[in-house]
């Protein structure tokens, strides 16, 4: 603009420059995070590739790095995940149904809701302490898969509940009203009308919470998962180990070969996580397009 103004000194060039500098700073922040991600994945791949093989997946851990494998850890993780799903699904979905469809809007509902939100913020190791005292000792499950699964189920329960609640809330009320209108009881409405529509969202939430549980280490250590397991578990009361603990055990050793093994274990873990998350995302997208499109 041509005219100079005596009252104002807009210093546009300087402000523009500051803006560009700031934008560069913000961009480098993002670049930093992405760089760390890439380096992490690259390091894991580089260190672990040499050790990652079919033998690796099918062998037991060993003091001799060349013969070590993650079979018991993988099987242990699978056992634990199945039990976590079996425990957290009914309780989580049940709680969500209660909160969304049955609970009167009042103090009780708000109390439970706040409580769940607070539980989501409790450090995972505290859940481990709880599991140690309640499941291992009090209920007498010992250092078993069941104790580990129950502990992890409690850990992910808030996540399951919140995801299920959102899915249930997303069901349009017109659907419920139509069902009530033909004389269905509350449970009939829930079971035949609300749940089927909400199920994809609920399942997505379940898969995401399982993918969180499978990577948890601290609570499982507290509950007594072993570091060195030379057998495959056959039942829920067996001693066990899980993949993250095996990784932890190998990482903590000073020798370089064990770091390579750890990296290979991480590759396995990350692949499993990738598959789980991809499934969840595909599920969500498929049902979102079906509903909205």
């Amino acid at each position: 603009m041509s005219l100079q103004d005596e009252r104002f000194e807009p210093r546009l060039a300087r402000r523009r420059r500051n803006g560009k500098i700031f934008q560069a700073v913000c961009l480098s922040s993002i670049a930093f995070s992405i760089a760390m991600l890439i380096i992490l994945l690259f390091d894991v791949a580089k260190d672990g590739a040499a050790w990652f093989s079919f033998d690796f997946i099918t062998s037991f851990p060993s003091r001799i790095p060349d013969r070590a494998g993650v079979k018991p850890a993988i099987l242990g993780s699978l056992w634990v995940m199945m039990l976590v799903a079996a425990i957290s699904f009914p309780f989580g979905v049940g709680a969500a149904i209660y909160l969304e469809e049955y609970a009167p809007k009042g103090r009780v509902r708000r109390l439970i809701q706040t409580n769940i939100a607070n539980l989501a913020g409790v450090p995972s190791i505290v859940y481990g302490i709880l599991g140690l005292a309640i499941f291992v000792r009090f209920f007498g499950f010992g250092r078993s898969i069941l104790a580990g699964a129950a502990t992890l189920a409690l850990l992910v329960l808030p996540v399951v509940i919140i995801a299920a609640q959102e899915a249930i809330r997303a069901v349009p009320s017109s659907l419920r009203e139509a069902a009530y209108g033909v004389g269905a009881t509350r449970w009939q409405v829930v079971r035949h009308h609300v749940l089927p529509v909400a199920m994809p969202g609920i399942l997505t939430g379940m898969i995401l919470s399982l993918s969180r549980a499978i990577g948890e280490t601290a609570p499982v250590i507290l509950v007594g998962a072993l570091a060195f397991v030379a057998f495959t578990p056959t039942g829920p009361m067996d001693l066990f180990t899980v993949l993250p603990i095996q990784i932890f055990n190998w990482t903590a050793r000073p020798q370089a070969e064990f770091h390579g093994l750890a990296a290979a274990g991480i590759i396995v873990l990350l692949i499993v996580l990738l598959m789980m998350n991809a499934t969840a995302i595909l599920l969500r997208n498929y049902y979102q397009s079906r509903r909205g499109g």
Partner: peptide, 30 residues
Amino acid sequence: RRVGEGLIAGLLFTCGLVSVLTTIGIVVVL
């Protein structure tokens, strides 16, 4: 039917209680 509905409501309420029990459990244990 009324009893059935009541039972189900009770069951679901119990599920909702689990989270409360978890908090209580943590506090009591610690």
